[in-house]
Amino acid sequence: VMLTNSTGAYGLAVSEHMFAMLLEIIKKLHIYRDNQNERIWKSEGRVKTIYNSKVLIVGLGNIGCNFAKMVNALGGYTIGVKRRPSEKPDFIDELYLNDELDNLLPKADIVALCLPSTKDTQKLFSKERIALMKEGSILLNVGRGASVDTEALCDAVESGHLLGAGIDVVDPEPLPEDHRLWGIKNIVMTPHVSGWYNLAETYERIFDISLDNLKRFLNGEELKNIIDFNTGYVK
Results as ranks from 00 to 15, higher is better:
Gly61Lys: 11
Ser53Gln: 07
Ile25Asp: 03
Leu105Asn: 09
Val81Met: 06
Lys119Glu: 11
Gly64Lys: 06
Gln36Met: 05
Lys119Leu: 08
Gly75Trp: 08
Leu97Lys: 07
Ile26Gly: 09
Leu97Tyr: 00
Pro85Met: 10
Ala112Val: 15
Arg84Lys: 11
Ile50Arg: 02
Leu124Gln: 08
Cys65Leu: 15
Tyr32Glu: 10
Gly45Tyr: 01
Ala112Pro: 00
Lys88Arg: 15
Arg84Trp: 12
Ser53Gly: 00
Gly80Thr: 11
Leu74Glu: 07
Ile63Thr: 11
Cys114Thr: 15
Lys88Tyr: 02
Tyr32Pro: 07
Thr118Ser: 13
Leu95Glu: 13
Gln36Trp: 01
Tyr51Met: 03
Val58Glu: 03
Lys28Glu: 02
Asp93Lys: 04
Arg39Asp: 09
Lys123Val: 13
Lys82Phe: 07
Phe67Pro: 10
Val81Ser: 12
Lys27Phe: 05
Pro116Tyr: 03
Ile57Thr: 13
Ala73Gly: 06
Lys48Gln: 12
Asp90Pro: 00
Ile40Gln: 06
Leu95Ile: 13
Arg83Phe: 04
Ile57Leu: 07
His30Phe: 06
Lys82Arg: 15
Asp120Thr: 09
Lys48Thr: 06
Pro116Phe: 06
Ser86Val: 06
Gly59Phe: 07
Asn62His: 12
Asn98Ile: 13
Leu95Phe: 12
Glu100Lys: 15
Ser43Asp: 15
Glu38Asn: 12
Thr118Gln: 07
Leu124Gly: 08
Ile31Cys: 11
Lys48Ile: 00
Ile50Ala: 01
Val81Tyr: 14
Asp93Arg: 06
Ile25Met: 12
Tyr32Asp: 11
Pro85Leu: 10
Thr78Met: 10
Tyr96Met: 02
Ile26Ala: 06
Lys54Asp: 07
Tyr96Trp: 15
Leu95Cys: 08
Gly80Trp: 02
Asp93Gln: 06
Val71Phe: 03
Val81Phe: 09
Lys69Met: 05
Asp90Trp: 05
Val111Gln: 04
Lys119Met: 10
Ser117Met: 10
Asn52Ser: 13
Ile63Ala: 05
Val71Gly: 00
Leu60Lys: 04
Ile40Trp: 01
Ile110Arg: 05
Asp120Trp: 00
Leu124Tyr: 10
Thr121Asn: 09
Asp99Tyr: 14
Val71Lys: 03
Pro116Lys: 10
Lys54Arg: 14
Leu101Cys: 07
Ile63Pro: 10
Val58Met: 03
Asn72Asp: 15
Val111Lys: 01
Asn66Tyr: 08
Asp99Val: 04
Ile50Gly: 01
Val55Phe: 02
Val111His: 02
Glu87Ala: 13
Tyr96Pro: 04
Asn35Gln: 10
Ile110Phe: 03
Glu38Met: 12
Val47Met: 12
Asn66Ile: 01
Gln122Leu: 14
Ser43Gln: 06
Asp99Thr: 05
Ile63Tyr: 05
Ile57His: 01
Cys114Phe: 08
Trp41Asn: 13
Glu44Trp: 00
Asn66Glu: 14
Arg46Cys: 00
Lys69Arg: 15
Asn103Glu: 15
Gly45Met: 05
Ala68Tyr: 00
